[in-house]
Design a protein around this nucleic acid. Structure first.
Lengths: 331, 331
DNA sequence: CCTAGTAGGGAAAACGTTCTCTGTGGTTTT
DNA sequence: AAAACCACAGAGAACGTTTTCCCTACTAGG
């Protein structure tokens, strides 16, 4: 049998209500407060959060649902969200959907049952579409992947502009055959694809969009098909994220392509190891900490102003030029 | 106002107890079951987990506390634990301590307040020591870092043997000046260090142990000191994990050392990008999925057999030889 | 046909808190 | 000096479930 608030009250010779008040930091006579604190330490009392949540009707818990925890981008954002949330006395329920819309729906329902205060969500494509219509009991902040028409607050980076930046960079270096590799299932992929397409148009060169599935084996097959024929091979690639980039590197390695000599490479996301591959990869670094911080802040703010219009925070990425752009054939 | 079990009961014209029984899958008259299910759908009822946990006195929740979520090893293990746990109907409370013993203690207390079923923990060095003495209300399974004398179940890999394997590999390639870089704060680091030391002894060459702090800046300073003087530079390195490895790579890059020509490199952990650095890094791959699975299984088993003696699962790592061993000067 | 046993449903207690409401003692105001 | 007010403590309800206990109706065995 565990020690409860009544036991503490008995030891301190006060009422349970007073113990509760002391623990909540409400005004209580200093004498009593000391007696209560002493009793708490003496008994080793630990409040039962389930009971507290039931009675008080707020859980001080947020849900964090990401699509792929192996993607370092999400890892980094999660870490920030977790740190900030715990700092503010919020618990975090962490979920990983592995890009599975059914799992996502299941988790969203779980959040409902947990009566969470709010949710931070990086949705799958399907999920993003669904969210736009559904009304939930708690506020949701979308991160990284948010259709512009969403009915939720969101924190994103300017994907189109960033993709364009990569295209322009490659174009300046003299590349004319620049293929774009983008995820098939995410809003992010689509936005980056759009930015890529427009930038190619503005450069006056024909684009070549390659949709890449999330699953690794399939991804490598698609990429192999793109690169194996030397005569039709693009001279440069814009890659949508670091996971996809690893598939590209593996295929390039298998085909014995040297970077950037045989193939120039640019990508989203910035990981430490990218400094050491292909003479240093030129990438768009995403402001992962800011994204996490903005998401939590936005969520807290939404709780205070439930009826405020939906907001969209758009952050800029940072372009980091290293050597992997190489020189285009026509430079 | 949210819909509760009483509302469902009213709609289905049964008692709340019956609704509870239906939802729990206990034997109930088929007619009533149908009525209840219909009422559940009609009302959109979602059980309140806080109330359920309070009354039933089991939370079906496990805590997962890791020391550094940015370390892909922990990411991978976490992903497996999460997937398996949710499969078994368990919630996971995920926490990241950032190698901070105080944060770890705070989280452990939180677990107490959440009345979790059990905890899977990758402790800091301090934490590992403390755990050995403390008795908690819930079972704890230690992963990755577990002092052999711990009073908890644990899942680890055979760190000493694996470190020795790297030493032997390098020795066979002709290296004689092999430095070992290990974390200062973890049991794992110490074990790998021991294995390294013994293997060096057996090879009959003097060891050079370099303690590397977890914080990145400091780590790079230590590594720079080790590598900058060409005359005293070791010809090969055994590195304790992939995070530390990235610091090594950055320093090597800054000093313009080529791998493996100027410096042979071996490490623990296997990440996709390691294929493409230094002609492919030779590493020890840890069985991350098995570790996660074993941890959950062990925890569940401990719940059924509370008084069983403490067990220790030791898994083997897999050595993957690539090119980064190079050729030692004396080969 | 009667009794014992069983299966399943309803009423109400219980889980451990917080919250509301009431009471009391002291202080300020008139 | 009386009235009004304020600050704070205690009693007990309430949160939304599950569980316990009892009761009924049915089945099986004698």
């Amino acid at each position: 049998m565990n020690v409860g608030i009544k036991d503490v009250a008995r030891v301190a010779a006060v009422s349970p209500a007073t113990v509760s008040r002391v623990l909540a930091g409400r005004p209580v006579d200093p004498d009593m407060r000391d007696r209560v604190m002493a009793a708490v330490h003496e008994t080793g009392y630990r409040p039962n959060l389930a009971a507290r949540r039931l009675r008080s009707r707020h859980t001080n818990t947020i849900g964090l649902i990401v699509a792929d925890i192996r993607n370092p981008f999400f890892t980094a954002v999660s870490r920030t969200v977790e740190a900030i949330a715990y700092d503010r006395g919020l618990r975090v329920i962490f979920c990983n959907t592995d890009e599975d819309a059914a799992k996502e729906a299941m988790y969203l329902q779980l959040m409902q049952e947990e009566r969470v205060t709010g949710v931070i969500l990086a949705p799958t494509r399907e999920g993003a579409d669904r969210i736009a219509h559904v009304e939930s009991d708690f506020p949701i902040v979308l991160i990284d992947r948010a259709a512009p028409n969403a009915s939720c607050d969101s924190v994103v980076i300017d994907n189109a502009a960033m993709a364009a930046k990569l295209v322009v960079h490659l174009h300046r270096l003299g590349h004319r055959r620049i293929a774009g590799l983008f995820g098939t299932d995410t809003v992010t992929g689509r936005e980056r694809c759009d930015g890529y397409g427009r930038a190619m148009e503005e450069c006056g060169i024909p684009g070549q969009v390659v949709p890449v599935p999330h699953e690794r084996e399939q991804a490598q097959r698609v990429i192999t098909a793109l690169l194996e024929d030397a005569s039709r091979r693009p001279s440069a690639l814009v890659v949508s994220n670091s996971v996809m980039l690893q598939s590209v590197l593996r295929v390039a390695d298998a085909l014995e392509l040297e970077i950037p000599r045989d193939l120039a490479l640019t990508s989203f996301d910035n990981e430490p190891w990218m400094e050491f591959v292909g003479g240093g990869l030129s990438v768009i670094e995403q402001p992962v900490e800011e994204i996490g911080r903005a998401a939590v802040t936005m969520l807290m703010d939404r709780l205070d102003h439930a009826d405020c219009v939906t907001r969209r925070v758009v952050l800029a990425g940072r372009f980091i030029a290293r050597g992997s752009g190489g020189r285009g054939a026509e430079a």
